[in-house]
Nucleic acid binder design. Structure first.
Lengths: 270, 270
DNA sequence: CGCCGACTTGAGCAATCTCAATCATGGTGG
DNA sequence: CCACCATGATTGAGATTGCTCAAGTCGGCG
């Protein structure tokens, strides 16, 4: 686990990076934009249009901070394009990646009352567009729209499920297995042999998997033996099904000579 | 990470353990019982009494399974007394501890619609009493009571926050640090020097921290140098504040001879 | 008294990290 | 067009953490 940020060594305050000019020129957004957000896919039309009244779309550059852990929640942001890192920052200053949000996903938590506080920091990965809804309006509509309420509850459960999966994989899988599972997630469904591009650089992937960059690199090397080729950001999987099969075996002890199969039945944490 | 269950090597199906007789004699429960549940602390009286109509209290023995991952959600359970483990079970059969629920806490997720499926398995730790609300009634009231809705959303956010903390600590702390933090959590607030009992056995604590039992044992041994004594289940902390201070230092590399302090500024995963 | 389960301890090994060097790549300026 | 630099990625070597196996302690209970 634990990877350095590479560039933004400080990343405190909404620092503008790379000296580019055009940062943060809020654009208005309408119901059409909102409808593209997963959370709203089942929300009724009228709520949606009321929600979109003060919606704004903002652009960020790589490393820009969207909000900081401990600061008050003033609005509810969603990723329109690009990626956003969610980080926990310990008192020591140590930053730990908690999750990465991509297009259509909510960043942070839906506020349900006034005076809430961010429990994580959020930072743009590459050029990113974000749609922001003012928290106050959102909170008001939450009280009036059951369909919005239901959507938020569904989203929360999703989020809980994903985090539990994260805990499970950190507790029970090694780096090779986590990488294999990560790759399987990226494979377009349907084809057994496939080719795609990694969504972000390997430093970030390493942090996402909770390993050092060097360890990730070695894990990729190990997967070559199982039909996974990489050229920088491009990945080629010879057989998705075969990789999925191997996934378990990657956890097997490297077996010093004669192996005493304690086949299956490994009780992990219980 | 990863600990064996010790006893219930199979734990499949609602197995009755230890051959005791008196298992599962559902008792009715009233609003008074519900009020003790954290989730309901701010729910209005009328909703609460309607909710309690079909509430039942059931008793379980150590190792009994309350529900199984993948099975349909028929009711919403809460811990009245004792502890309940939440486990994820991989296709390989490997079980991973996700969380431990204690008195007043909700087990599993609040159902928001029909036909939901459990995403974890739940198993009693020691003798445990559980309050169950039928899912259908709960779902109905959720649609009618904004205060119940709000309570569920608050609970979800809590849960998300705790899971994020879990991910953070698994990614960024070693076994010693995790144990130190765990102990600090158990210390009664106020006193600097304190003494208390561990809530469950060390095998379970190890699983909770994501390490093997032997590793936990060694971590306890290391903490003795920082004023933490243990006699089986009793813990004595000489100075809570001192332990809290040491917490960070426990992560420091054991420093082979001359140490190049790279004091602070460790960017973990980002 | 003897067994069993929980816990501890020791020894060796595997996974991962750290440090450091190297390599590839894309962009920049001359 | 090319030398040069910054950044990301890879690789090697050695240190450290945590795991596995195995034995031993301790306390309770039949």
């Amino acid at each position: 686990m634990t990877i350095e940020t590479g560039h933004a060594a400080h990343s405190c305050g909404a620092v503008q990076r790379k000296g580019r000019a055009s940062r943060r020129a809020p654009q208005p957004a309408g119901p059409a934009e909102l409808r593209k957000i997963l959370l709203f896919s089942n929300v009724d039309e009228s709520t949606l249009s009321r929600l979109s009244a003060d919606a704004k779309i903002e652009s960020f550059h790589d490393g820009d901070q969207l909000f900081r852990q401990g600061s008050p929640v003033t609005d509810l942001p969603f990723v329109v394009s690009g990626y956003v890192k969610l980080l926990r920052i310990a008192p020591s200053g140590r930053q730990t990646l908690i999750a990465i949000r991509s297009g259509g996903e909510m960043i942070g938590e839906a506020p349900t009352g006034p005076d809430e506080i961010h429990t994580v920091s959020a930072e743009a990965v590459g050029a990113t567009k974000v749609l922001k809804l003012p928290a106050t309006r959102f909170i008001r509509l939450l009280k009036e729209s059951p369909s919005l309420c239901a959507a938020v509850m569904r989203e929360s459960k999703d989020s809980i499920g994903r985090l539990m999966g994260e805990v499970e994989s950190l507790k029970s899988q090694n780096a090779d297995q986590r990488l294999a599972r990560f790759i399987l997630l990226l494979c377009p469904p349907g084809e057994d042999r496939c080719r795609f591009r990694l969504p972000y650089d390997k430093r970030l992937i390493a942090a996402r998997l909770g390993v050092k960059q060097e360890t990730l690199s070695r894990a990729f090397a190990k997967l070559r033996a199982h039909g996974v080729r990489t050229e920088t950001r491009n990945v080629h999987v010879e057989s998705v099904s075969h990789l999925a099969d191997q996934c378990d075996r990657l956890g097997q002890r490297a077996r010093s000579a004669f192996g005493r199969r304690n086949a299956e039945k490994r009780h992990d944490a219980a």
